[in-house]
Amino acid sequence: MTDSATHAVDKLIRMANQIAVAFAAQPRDEAITGVADHIKAFWTPKMRRDIGAHLAEGGQRLEPLAKAALERLQ
């Protein structure tokens, strides 16, 4: 992955983790749905593809909630 691609994915990971934290107070399943719906509603297809690539590589830097939501969106 190039530096620029890494930078872009870093930002997406940060965004996804922020969203996950915002929904963390909800019961887990509702929270996963909330995060997934939010990303679906506001992210471009390319953003979802880019973070999907990170997820495919293990998604290690994703919060568990963010990871679960992104897995649901795949």
């Binding site: 872009a8 930002k11 509603a41 506001f42 992210w43 471009t44 297809p45 390319k46 953003m47």
Partner: peptide, 12 residues
């Protein structure tokens, strides 16, 4: 599908 926000445009 949703388009880009301003920060996305600048990043892209």
């Amino acid at each position: 599908t949703p388009g880009m926000r301003i920060p996305n445009m600048l990043d892209e």
